[in-house]
Write a protein that binds this DNA or RNA. Structure first.
Lengths: 225, 225
DNA sequence: CCGTAATTTAATGCATACATTAATTAATGC
DNA sequence: GCATTAATTAATGTATGCATTAAATTACGG
């Protein structure tokens, strides 16, 4: 599952986690609309925490609240994908550069390599879903290692927004072997402190991802996932 | 004023606009704490819309809600400034590149140049506050012209967060004459479609801004504005 | 006199009731 | 029969009250 409802304290947080999870897992369908009351009933709580959660999710781009038209799960269009990947293509390479400059800790190296191994294993087992999650974990942890909380939040939100599209195209794309080569090389550049190589490689890596996804979506007529 | 409360419909939006304005204008002091009830009374409404507004403002980094410790206006530290400017140094040059690549419309050119003129006039009149607002408008409009709504939102939030620091250091910095030279050159690069020059110039422009601000804050011992 | 536990206090989390207002339906006139 | 307007409906916006729980205070024991 994508954002499996973690054990949180308040109902607002529960609602946030659960709804986000349902949206990312495609259980709440894009373009579908719901009323506050429906969602509240669905989650077994009153409207208040649901409202607070949906307001949050709206500002993060997962849904749209139109006062008398209900709460609509936002589909992701090609334009959205392009906009998001364009920004990730700026932000993730910056993160790679930063980590390379500041130095990769032992712990950081272990963390990243564990994801690389997980991806290798997943590919071996032909488990594309496992691969996708390990890929996501790798990219997010690299960004987190850059130590800029605002950056982490933004990148995390964007990965959340494209999650459905990534999962939907998983079986349509070629096996991501080359991708994992990039990851290994990236870690080595980062570890050796070669920030320019790290930045450039990661930039190309992201550009490739964008091109591939946009082409896939175009050719398979998958607009509005 | 910074975020002068525009005429909005709902009380939640009113509360959001008003509080954001008060925070940016330094009327609600950084590090000060308030209770939901206090703010509600202050704004002449019940706790509900105040809660919704403060949740929003928290997720945008303007304040922090700690359940039994009140709502604290977040001060901005040097580390915050560095993190924010590092990201703006990636994002704004990208915007400049994008606009240069896609082409600057007649309207866009007029818009940007109007801000440049406003800055010139402000400098002539020694009105640093007017200059600061025109500078902000220039940078934000350039980003908007890139046509990536997510980018605009992020950059706007960041400028909001550093607003207090910029205003506080306004009289401490040298007169920003060179800055406006940059703006003129940038517009000309963008208009001529020279995206590499536009990107590079804007990148340097942002780097300089970062260095200057961070140095000022350090030397004047202005941590936690 | 100090530290721990029980009690009190009060702020938030949440539910609910009500007010408001937009959408829908009905009604009226042309 | 159609269009315009009034009446109705229902969903959201907001206020409020209660429950919960953390902080503060007091009381008690060592």
């Amino acid at each position: 599952m994508a954002g499996s409802a973690r054990k949180t304290d308040t109902r607002t947080q529960q609602a946030y986690q659960t709804l986000k999870g349902l949206i990312m897992d495609n259980a709440l369908k894009p373009s579908a609309s719901y009323l506050e009351t429906e969602l509240a009933e669905m989650l077994g709580m009153s409207r208040t925490p649901v409202r607070e959660a949906t307001l949050q999710l709206e500002s993060e781009g997962f849904l749209s609240i139109r006062p008398r038209h209900g709460i609509t799960i936002l589909p992701i269009s090609i334009e959205d994908m392009q906009d998001i990947y364009d920004l990730l293509t700026e932000l993730e390479p910056y993160a790679a550069e930063k980590v390379a400059r500041d130095g990769l800790s032992e712990h950081g190296h272990t963390l990243l390599m564990s994801h690389v191994s997980a991806m290798d294993a997943a590919l071996q087992a032909n488990d594309l879903i496992a691969w996708a999650y390990a890929d996501e974990a790798f990219h997010m942890d690299l960004v987190r290692l850059a130590g800029n909380a605002r950056l982490s939040k933004i990148v995390s939100t964007f990965w959340g927004q494209v999650h459905r599209a990534r999962m939907a195209t998983l079986t349509l794309r070629p096996k991501p072997v080359r991708s994992n080569e990039d990851h290994r090389r990236l870690v080595s550049f980062v570890q050796s402190g070669d920030w320019q190589a790290a930045r450039n490689l990661h930039r190309e890596h992201r550009k490739n991802a964008k091109t591939m996804l946009v082409d896939l979506i175009t050719h398979h007529n998958l607009n509005h996932l």
